[in-house]
Write a protein that binds this DNA or RNA. Sequence first.
DNA 1: TAGATTGTTAATCGATTAACAATC
DNA 2: TAGATTGTTAATCGATTAACAATC
Lengths: 214, 214
Amino acid sequence: MGRRAGTDGLTHIQVERFMHYYHFIANRQDRNPDDTFTSAQVAESAGMDGSLVRKDLAAINIRGCSGRGFRTDESLEAIRYILGFDEILRAVIIGAGRLGGALASYHSFTDYGVEICGLFDIAPHKTGLTIGAFEVRHVSSLPNIVRQMSASIAILTVPPEAAQESADNAVAAGIRGIWNFAGTRLELPKDVCVRHEHISVGLAELGYKLRNAT
Amino acid sequence: MGRRAGTDGLTHIQVERFMHYYHFIANRQDRNPDDTFTSAQVAESAGMDGSLVRKDLAAINIRGCSGRGFRTDESLEAIRYILGFDEILRAVIIGAGRLGGALASYHSFTDYGVEICGLFDIAPHKTGLTIGAFEVRHVSSLPNIVRQMSASIAILTVPPEAAQESADNAVAAGIRGIWNFAGTRLELPKDVCVRHEHISVGLAELGYKLRNAT
DNA sequence: TAGATTGTTAATCGATTAACAATC
DNA sequence: TAGATTGTTAATCGATTAACAATC
């Protein structure tokens, strides 16, 4: 799967910004159906300069209209395209605890091109339980399901001490990307994409702001 | 509560880096008890340059030892101090769904100076249920509890359509910081600290990396 | 001492903003 | 036309890295 037309690949920070634009524009359209928006409106919502918004949009071949702004539908579509949301990836969740269950029930993942196709746990007493739309399966069936469904992502919601082993098993089964909520560092082959979702970082940041607020 | 000695306030990005250092150093100490580490070791774990680590540590008055490195315990303590982890903030969770329950059961928050002191929901049938160590309370009792406990943080795990109202109520009750998991933008007074934890951003980033991997 | 690593400055790199002619 | 906003370059700003003398 190659790069999309119009860029040489986005940086981590650009992807974040495009997500912000996407949410802002989509939200705005819901409340106030208008077929255009301006770079200043988007910029203001993020406390940044309009020229950066224009530059980002230009980078993905969205051209605005002088005096008017940008077309809402066209821009949303272009962002979906550049981020690849219409190219579905399948994911399995490993760890059917509260967080795993919460993620399994989070229906918006499909909006971003990811479809959950299985929820796994190592505890035999959880096997067969229904959580959200899923029946919990034992991890021993992970390799089969990953292969059958061509799943490429594993979402790790296991306890920290089980994270490395779970990740290793997932990779052995053919998983190519890991979204790790276990809060531990993982040692994995370099060709496996890993995203550490370290929830405590968000907490620490909010706490810092709050403790140092005037 | 003023700034801590040794800095004029850390940027958002520096806080993230200090969290990384903290986790790396603490982890390293667990596995391999050694009373020093070098800037190169920390840097390698994050794919950055050692001089940045040294500069960050110098900024919070941690001085290393030429030829040896930095003292583990001293560094951890200094990071805890600068991030304010020993100055406890109390938090309430609003929304006792799966995610709220998962966060209520996440015991490590205290490591970062935040203590959960209540779990609330608007649904009468949830009132009285026990989730983790908490009994779910009805949101109508939120103002009282916030005052009694001097809670300053609200963790929002309500559905998107309830987020603004929940936030307004929390702020009216005296909450000064909001950790928002609802995925919606909130309109709040400027003196309220808000952190939007937009889970889909992480997913989009992992998806992007994966789709564009060689 | 020889080797390793710091502390720190200068150089580099990259990202953001300012500015404004072009254009709808 | 007058007003608004884009597209884009140049200027600025800030963050990261390179380099190396100082030091344990």
